[in-house]
Simulated assay, not measured.
Amino acid sequence: MKQQPRADERRPANDGPKAAARNRAALVAAAREVYAESGLDAPLSAVARRAGVGQGVLYRHFPDRAAVATAVLEENVRQIEQAAAAEGATLADVLGVMTWHLTESAAFIGLMHADGAGSRSGIRAHALALSERVERGLRGHLPDGYRLGGANDLMLAVAMVSGAVTGPTREEREQRALAAWRLLGIEVGPVRPFEG
């Protein structure tokens, strides 16, 4: 027999849409972490566990693996676009935000190599569109005559740096990315997420 709650007991509030938004944000953050540690082939159950939700919640927000990767990539690109649109932003500032995403997200590294990104997961066209958005954000801060101003030079440099982002820890990956930018003679601002 089920006991009814007493009048002085309160049931937990059902946050409805607020909980859904929180769960989605937690899933994207968890996916970024899990992908950084284990790559894009990490089990989705690990993403749900890291986010503190059940797999059913994950699948309510994301029907498949490609949708999870796309959400992580969208968030990465959105932060770079916000950094690029911030008042007084410089190329170094935007590169700092982009470099943070490179060191945090294996999925984002794949995006910077969009020719191969998503070929097995069905998100190739979307990855190319996201890569173009990153390029627009960066290109908008290139001074006239800048060394990376050529047609493909900017994204080639980004791809070269992203290829250097290896190592078991975030700190090692960041050091390698910054060393690669230095070798290219490019100044990078503080490596951090965009906090607008």
Rank of each mutant, 00 (worst) to 15 (best):
A26S: 06
L73G: 05
R22V: 03
G52L: 04
P143L: 02
L58C: 14
R182Q: 15
V72H: 00
E33N: 12
A84V: 06
G116H: 06
D41R: 15
H113Y: 12
A46S: 12
R10N: 04
M1W: 11
R65G: 03
A92V: 02
V57Q: 10
A84P: 11
A129R: 05
L148G: 11
A36Y: 08
D93S: 04
H61V: 00
R50M: 10
G137H: 08
S121G: 15
A164R: 12
L128H: 12
L148V: 04
A164D: 09
L91C: 06
I186P: 00
G185M: 07
A107W: 07
R65H: 10
A89W: 05
R120V: 11
N23Y: 11
V57W: 01
N76P: 00
A151L: 11
V188D: 08
S121T: 15
L154T: 08
V134C: 14
L95M: 08
A29P: 03
H61C: 04
N152W: 10
R32G: 13
E9V: 13
R10V: 09
L102F: 03
Q79D: 08
A30W: 04
G167W: 07
V191W: 00
E37G: 13
V97E: 05
A89G: 14
G189A: 09
F194A: 14
S45Y: 07
R11C: 03
I109C: 13
E81F: 01
Q55H: 12
G140P: 10
R139N: 10
D153W: 02
R78H: 10
G149Q: 06
G185S: 05
A71N: 08
A46W: 05
L128N: 11
Q79C: 01
G118V: 01
Q82D: 14
R6C: 04
V72S: 06
A106Y: 08
G122I: 09
A106N: 14
A89P: 14
K2V: 14
A21P: 07
L156V: 10
V191A: 07
R136W: 00
A7L: 10
V77Y: 05
E132Q: 10
T90A: 09
G140W: 14
E174D: 13
E9K: 06
G140H: 13
M160Y: 09
G96S: 06
L27C: 05
A71P: 04
A117C: 10
E195R: 08
L102D: 02
L184E: 01
P63K: 07
G167E: 12
T99C: 12
S131P: 01
L128Y: 09
A114Y: 08
D15L: 14
A84I: 03
A177F: 03
I109H: 07
S162I: 00
I80Q: 07
L27D: 05
A83I: 01
A13D: 04
N23L: 02
T169L: 14
G149M: 05
E37D: 15
D144F: 07
P143K: 08
A20Y: 06
L27W: 01
P5C: 05
G116W: 02
A164N: 12
A26M: 08
A30S: 07
H113A: 15
L142N: 14
